[in-house]
Simulated assay, not measured.
Amino acid sequence: MSFSGKYSAGILLTFIILAAAMLYGFPAVTMVTGTKGITEVNFFLNRIVLWIILIIVFLYSIFIEKKTFLLKEEKKYPAAFYIRAVVSLYFICLIGGGILNAAIQFFMQEKISDKLLNLAPIFRNNYFLVIFTCLTAAIVEEFLMRGYVQPRLEKIYNNPTVAIVISSVLFGILHSTYGTVSQVLGPFFIGIVFAVFYKRYSNIKILIICHFMIDFIAMMMMNFIDIKHLSVF
């Protein structure tokens, strides 16, 4: 199999098992634990599944593709650049996402995701679960969607713009299990911003830090403000 074929298979594998985890992760975990519904233990185990997926894709890149997991070499920058980049990315995503969400609310009067409403209670004052969840999302999603999928799409199509768009579309689709348009378009927008940054600066660590900050601040807001009042969330 050619490298393009191996890359295509790897991207397909990544998307399928991530989608399966999003759709069937909770039912599978409840079968193992015997506890129905969204509980702290079930959610924690569901996040562990995402780490396992990252390991599977990492092993695929090493033993099947026989390539390094990150095709793009990590560039090093001064500490000041990290700070500026993280803050800039955060506010771009916050402001852009807020405008996008406001537009969706204006045209569709969309309700808050039922899944988010059901998840909110298990994070209340559970700071370990909040931090673990944010770390999992930041590390696993950035390594897979930006670090793994995007550069391989660029190799396949020999077009960075196509890679940015497709990887962002996949990123948005993976969040469709929340059941709302905003939970698809929001991640799609963030995916575009992050993908453009990764193409330009080749630094996955900055994206991980920013992704963690976005999720952590949002989830901490859930701890102190009723989620029904968080229209931007």
Rank of each mutant, 00 (worst) to 15 (best):
S2W: 05
F3Q: 13
G5K: 10
S8G: 14
S8Q: 12
S8W: 12
G10C: 05
F15E: 08
I16P: 00
I16M: 10
I17V: 08
I17N: 01
A19T: 05
A20M: 06
A21P: 02
A21R: 05
M22C: 05
L23A: 10
L23G: 09
P27N: 10
T30M: 01
G34V: 13
G34W: 11
F43Y: 12
F44E: 02
F44N: 06
N46G: 05
R47F: 14
I53E: 00
I53S: 02
L54G: 00
V57I: 15
V57S: 06
V57F: 07
F58T: 08
L59F: 03
S61N: 06
E65V: 12
K66A: 08
F69E: 11
L70C: 08
K72C: 00
E74N: 07
E74C: 04
K76N: 14
P78R: 12
P78E: 15
P78V: 07
P78T: 11
A80E: 09
F81K: 15
R84G: 08
S88A: 14
L89D: 01
Y90M: 08
Y90A: 04
I92H: 07
C93T: 11
C93Q: 11
C93N: 13
G96E: 04
G97K: 12
G98K: 11
I99D: 03
I104L: 13
Q105A: 14
F106T: 03
F106E: 04
F107G: 03
F107Y: 15
F107K: 00
M108K: 05
Q109G: 01
Q109T: 01
E110H: 06
K111S: 12
S113T: 02
A120W: 04
P121Y: 09
R124M: 04
N125I: 01
Y127N: 09
L129R: 12
I131F: 12
I131Q: 07
L135S: 05
A138I: 15
A138L: 10
V140D: 05
F143D: 02
F143A: 04
L144H: 00
R146G: 02
R146A: 00
Y148N: 08
Y148K: 02
Y148S: 03
E154M: 07
E154F: 01
P160W: 15
P160V: 09
L170A: 07
L170K: 07
I173L: 13
L174I: 07
H175W: 08
S176Y: 10
G179R: 06
V181G: 02
S182R: 09
S182Q: 14
Q183L: 12
G191W: 02
I192F: 13
V196S: 01
F197D: 01
K199Q: 06
K199V: 03
R200P: 04
R200G: 04
S202Q: 09
N203Y: 07
I206L: 02
I209A: 09
I209T: 02
I209P: 04
C210G: 05
C210W: 00
C210D: 12
H211F: 14
F212D: 00
M213A: 08
D215P: 00
D215S: 03
I217F: 12
M222F: 15
I225S: 08
I225F: 12
D226F: 14
F233L: 10
